[in-house]
Amino acid sequence: MVRTADEASVFPDVVVASIQMAPKVGSKAANLKRSIELIEEAAGHGAVIAVLPELANTGYVFSSRREAFELAEAVPDGESASAWIDVARRCKIHVVAGIAERVEDRLYNAAIVAGPKGYIGTYRKLHLWGDEHLFFESGDLGLPVFHTEIGRLGAVICYDGWFPEVYRLLAMRGADIVCMPTNWVPMPGQAGEHMAMANTLAMANAHSNGLNIICADRIGTERGQPFIGQSLIVGAQGWPIAGPASKDREEILYASINLKETRRARHLNAFNDVLRDRRDDIYDPMLGTGWPLPRH
């Protein structure tokens, strides 16, 4: 597709990065140091968004709520959040990073969003998985869409991606790019060379909603729990544009996204648009009725 100079300046291509790494539970200082090294590497390759895994600074498999509480920290003023905000400013990059957030006596599985101008916002995981129920509260901030100079960003975390309503509501609220910090684990029937179920879900939801989705998974085994890697970046037409990554190595995936092409992807042909074709006279209004659609 050929774009005019005016179109290219208004809707420039942006390079995004999915950072696949191997946090170690309890090793917060080392995990944070490694994450910053990888963010700096991504920025050096021209990325303007870098997504880290779920609970990237603490590790995932907590032995007790006490351990989770001691590793958690305030957002945006805690040590890890402050370090990620600093590297986002210094490297002129947007960072979405999974973190255990402490608010008084409550804990949240959260993601901090930071950019070149500093702290942007926080997302708290809505759908808790397994033993997470022993440590965390369900998210209470809804599905915010963060307006930035590079587009409208949404965030989800891991098991949130199993719920199509999440992606639909983000699309209805105008998101262009959804950033997913995640810690995918093996699923029943998922073995050998089969594509991860999570990858299939990301592709389907990207296509059904015209969204770019950046999935950043972790690798390794933690206290007996294996993680499957296979991070992925999916374009707004539903096809992978980078990855899947390996199952067992740290690596960074890069892809180029153009927001004008993203918004066009929702128009399947001269007659059909995946958002405007919705029969909201039939569906439950909680699936998005009532929000005005962006017109550009």
Rank of each mutant, 00 (worst) to 15 (best):
residue 210 G to Q: 05
residue 218 R to V: 00
residue 291 W to S: 12
residue 197 M to C: 13
residue 150 I to Q: 04
residue 156 V to Y: 03
residue 180 M to E: 15
residue 182 T to A: 15
residue 116 P to H: 10
residue 81 A to L: 02
residue 115 G to Q: 01
residue 176 D to Q: 13
residue 58 T to A: 03
residue 24 K to H: 11
residue 30 A to D: 15
residue 45 H to P: 06
residue 208 S to K: 13
residue 121 G to S: 09
residue 251 E to V: 03
residue 86 D to M: 07
residue 32 L to D: 08
residue 69 F to N: 12
residue 34 R to H: 14
residue 219 I to L: 00
residue 103 V to D: 07
residue 141 L to T: 10
residue 111 A to T: 13
residue 166 V to R: 01
residue 220 G to F: 03
residue 51 V to G: 01
residue 90 R to K: 09
residue 171 A to R: 01
residue 241 I to K: 12
residue 218 R to G: 02
residue 262 T to A: 11
residue 3 R to W: 12
residue 88 A to M: 05
residue 281 D to E: 08
residue 246 S to K: 04
residue 109 N to K: 08
residue 196 A to Q: 11
residue 56 A to L: 01
residue 173 R to I: 08
residue 272 N to A: 15
residue 21 M to D: 14
residue 52 L to E: 12
residue 8 A to P: 05
residue 125 K to W: 00
residue 176 D to H: 12
residue 286 M to N: 13
residue 37 E to F: 08
residue 63 S to C: 09
residue 248 D to K: 05
residue 168 R to F: 03
residue 80 S to D: 07
residue 207 H to G: 14
residue 171 A to L: 01
residue 140 D to L: 03
residue 133 H to C: 12
residue 246 S to R: 06
residue 273 D to R: 02
residue 20 Q to M: 04
residue 243 G to A: 11
residue 50 A to W: 04
residue 27 S to L: 12
residue 63 S to I: 15
residue 122 T to S: 15
residue 191 A to D: 13
residue 221 T to Q: 10
residue 15 V to L: 12
residue 252 I to F: 00
residue 133 H to M: 14
residue 293 L to I: 10
residue 286 M to D: 11
residue 163 F to T: 10
residue 78 G to F: 07
residue 183 N to F: 01
residue 59 G to R: 01
residue 255 A to D: 05
residue 145 V to W: 05
residue 257 I to Q: 04
residue 48 V to C: 06
residue 279 R to I: 07
residue 159 Y to V: 13
residue 153 L to N: 05
residue 98 G to Q: 04
residue 224 G to E: 09
residue 30 A to W: 13
residue 279 R to D: 14
residue 182 T to V: 06
residue 173 R to A: 12
residue 223 R to C: 08
residue 162 W to S: 10
residue 200 T to N: 14
residue 52 L to H: 05
residue 192 G to W: 01
residue 93 I to Y: 12
residue 28 K to F: 03
residue 17 A to P: 09
residue 24 K to Y: 09
residue 212 N to V: 10
residue 75 V to G: 02
residue 99 I to T: 00
residue 45 H to D: 04
residue 17 A to C: 13
residue 252 I to M: 00
residue 269 N to F: 01
residue 275 L to E: 01
residue 98 G to D: 06
residue 35 S to H: 09
residue 247 K to R: 12
residue 47 A to D: 13
residue 6 D to A: 15
residue 169 L to M: 10
residue 108 Y to A: 01
residue 18 S to Q: 09
residue 266 R to F: 06
residue 175 A to L: 08
residue 108 Y to E: 00
residue 19 I to M: 10
